[in-house]
Simulated assay, not measured.
Amino acid sequence: MKWQGRQGSSNVRTSSGGGKMIGGGIGGIIIAGILWLVFGVNPMTALQTGQVMAGGVGGNSTTQPATDDSRDTRFVKVVLADTEAVWHQVFNEGGQTYQEPSLVLFDGQVRSACGSATSATGPFYCPSDQTVYLDTSFFVEMRQSFGISGDQQGSGDAENRGKAGDFAQAYVISHEVGHHVQTLLGITQQVNEASRQVTRVQANKLSVMQELQADCFAGVWANRNESLVAGGFLEAGDVDEAINAAGQIGDDRLAQASGRTVTPDSFTHGTSQQRIQWFTRGLESGSVQSCDTFSGAL
């Protein structure tokens, strides 16, 4: 992925402290070592499925603009700027105005408007403060879990050449921004309302639809970005990285990895095949309209 030397977003901030997780949490669905892999394991999903993250009324951690010049911070700024460019374009086409989210980088723990979280929560989006939260250990976990070498260079010219695995990381960030788009479009609110009126199994199905749509929106971002960035930003192997990531975080794959029985009624994010399918659909179409995972369910 060619990202170096490109303009970054001014909406990236760092957290100076967090608070602690109080009770609840995300339960036993996720296993140690791959917690971060479940893109949408976030406070809103927990609320939808009854796995409440406690302590959500204590206010946010103190944040400030991210000013360090580390490689990971620069990368996050560029990816977020790319999502901003794409979604401004998409919303303008629909006669609407895109409201940019914030992205908070934290170390270890953080307090959001949706509750307190630790690095074990993984990247998440909080609709209450319209902010994506990303622990700084995320990049290390990605490289270790996917066998990505931080020193391995991708193809491309010397100035723009990225590192192998960059696109898989960008995919995760764009998925969380996809949840922000859902909030702006009122989809998150509809899912929450519908989930309160149905059984746990039915609420889980709604959660799957919501997560798969965020995957599809990530695909739309990748498609549209190619037309906005001069010469494109995708490199050979980038799409395969994203598909590999999507395949590893399906509910069925995670259940098998943890030695648990694969129980579709308990799924909240979709199977590996579904996640790959919907990301690919967005990538190939570049159209939000192609991302209707709900099919009249709401």
Rank of each mutant, 00 (worst) to 15 (best):
T121W: 02
Y98L: 10
A81P: 05
S128V: 10
Q109L: 05
R143Q: 14
F91S: 08
D135W: 07
F124P: 05
Q144K: 11
W87N: 08
A113S: 09
F146V: 13
H88G: 07
Q152N: 15
L134D: 06
D82N: 15
S112W: 02
D135L: 06
T131L: 12
A113I: 04
D107E: 12
F146E: 10
G122V: 00
S137R: 05
T83S: 11
L80W: 04
S128M: 10
F139G: 09
P127L: 03
V90H: 02
D157Q: 01
G147C: 11
P123Y: 01
T83A: 11
C114M: 13
V104A: 03
F124S: 05
G115L: 09
E141H: 10
D82I: 05
P101S: 03
D107W: 04
V86G: 06
S116P: 02
E84R: 02
A117T: 02
F124E: 04
L134V: 13
Q89T: 15
I148Y: 15
A81E: 13
G108E: 01
D151S: 15
Q89E: 15
V104S: 03
Y133N: 08
C126H: 00
Q153M: 15
A85T: 14
A85W: 13
F106R: 00
Y133H: 09
A81G: 09
V86I: 14
E84N: 09
L103Q: 00
D129A: 06
C126Q: 00
T136I: 14
N92S: 15
W87Q: 12
T121P: 00
Q96G: 06
L134C: 11
T121Y: 03
T121L: 12
D151W: 11
S155H: 09
G122Y: 00
S137Q: 02
G156V: 12
G108W: 00
Q99T: 12
L134R: 06
M142S: 11
D151Y: 13
G94V: 04
D82W: 14
F124T: 03
P101R: 00
G150A: 10
G150K: 05
G154E: 13
E100C: 02
D129Y: 05
S112R: 01
V104G: 02
Q130P: 02
R111G: 07
F124L: 14
P101Y: 01
D157S: 08
T83E: 05
V132H: 03
D82C: 12
L80A: 03
M142N: 13
S119R: 04
V110R: 00
L80I: 10
Q89M: 15
D157G: 10
Q89A: 15
L105T: 08
S119L: 06
T118L: 06
L105K: 04
G115F: 10
S112F: 00
Q109H: 08
Y133S: 06
Q99V: 14
G115D: 11
L134H: 06
H88T: 13
S155N: 14
G150W: 08
Q153V: 15
R143D: 15
V104R: 00
E84S: 06
Q109N: 09
R111W: 01
S155G: 14
S102V: 04
S112Y: 03
A117V: 06
V110A: 01
A81W: 02
F146W: 12
T83F: 04
L105H: 04
D135H: 09
Q130K: 11
Y98P: 01
E100D: 10
Q99N: 12
N92R: 14
T97Q: 08
C126L: 00
I148C: 12
T121F: 10
G94P: 08
L103T: 00
